[in-house]
Amino acid sequence: MIDEHFAGGTSPIHALDPRYRLAACLLLSLVAALARTPQTPLLILGAGLVLTVLSGVSAKLVLRRAAAVNLFIIFLWLFLPVSTPGMPLWQGLGLTVTREGVALAGLVTLKANAVFLCVLSLMGTIPAPALGRALTALGAPAKFSFLFVFTYRYLHVIAEEYGRLVTAARLRGFVPATDGRTYRTYAALVAMVLVRSYDRSQRVYQAMLLRGFTGVFPCLDRFAAGRRDVLFLGCVVALAAGAVWIEWLAGRGNV
């Protein structure tokens, strides 16, 4: 159901402490997202590319994901150049393409892809359970990270349950078609999944009580950061600082 294509691996990126990866990812994404000049996201896009290559994930998968992200960007290119006021570049069909509009669309494209590559190489390479622990370690509220971890754990169970129901329906000759009966059948299946999930949540809660749950979510901290992790985060912070500096220089030049 949830496939973690990037989480398994033995690359230098995968070997880094998940907490440091997550922190680096947040820092780079934040700097890229807040940039106003194209140089900053371009720098982070470059860093993201290097990290993605280092993480050794399949290029085909990366391109497929990138295509999905950039599908949304295409819509921005349709509207932003003609809807942003500024210096006209081209006029026709009652529309005016402005230089500012094109620049803005270009900036958004750079930012989106920079953040995409950073998240893919740094966060996508963390298995979900470790991501939950890393979130807690970085100070996210315990409830939030446990909600994430529980969702990951039980999404599989619920998906299996749905699969069993569909199989049961098929075994008794159910063939999906575009008619009212099919929709009613699917509605019944989804309703069953909801009811069963609710029942299951009760049983899970009971099981937690049986093992002494008192409302506090304990967590085994299994991270061990080494010199390499610190060095990595140091490089990322330096890069982010460089990006902010470029941003500042560019901003001063414009004024």
């Binding site: 979900a128 359970p129 939950g132 971890v149 529980f150 990951y152 754990r153 169970v157 299951r200 049983r203 899970v204 009971q206 099981a207 937690m208 093992r211 002494g212 749950f213 304990p218 967590c219 085994l220 299994r222």
Partner: peptide, 16 residues
């Protein structure tokens, strides 16, 4: 499945 609440085995056994 009702009893194993963590995605990873060690975390789950350490819960109690």
């Amino acid at each position: 499945d009702d009893q194993i609440i963590y995605p990873t085995v060690l975390d789950d056994v350490a819960f109690g």
